[in-house]
Amino acid sequence: MAEKTLTRADLSEAVYREVGLSRQESATLVEAVLDLLSDTLANGESVKLSSFGSFVLRDKNGRVGRNPKTGEEVPIDPRRVLVFKPSQVLKDRIDAALSK
């Protein structure tokens, strides 16, 4: 299958086509959605989008890591990471479309 990469421009185009806002406004709204998602997550709040998936924050403990090349021990600080948990609906749709 020829793989294509969609970007913000494709999402704006879809909004323009489906919702009927101007191109300018469609682009602004796509950016506003991504900004609000990012700001919410940056504030430490998870986001749940029904039938799509959840963006969940996870606090990882610090641990001793190792440089795989040199074998040297390096401390890894505790950190917070973002994980996307796809909903069952999304998983089912993608698997149905692609696994034959």
Partner: peptide
């Protein structure tokens, strides 16, 4: 409709085996 269109567009892209790349977001 804007929010649902964005989520649907991402889903359809993935169903077609495509990637969606949103710089700065993921």
């Amino acid at each position: 409709r804007v929010v649902n269109t964005i989520l649907e567009e991402v889903t359809v892209a993935l169903e077609q085996g495509n990637r969606v790349e949103l710089r700065g977001f993921g």
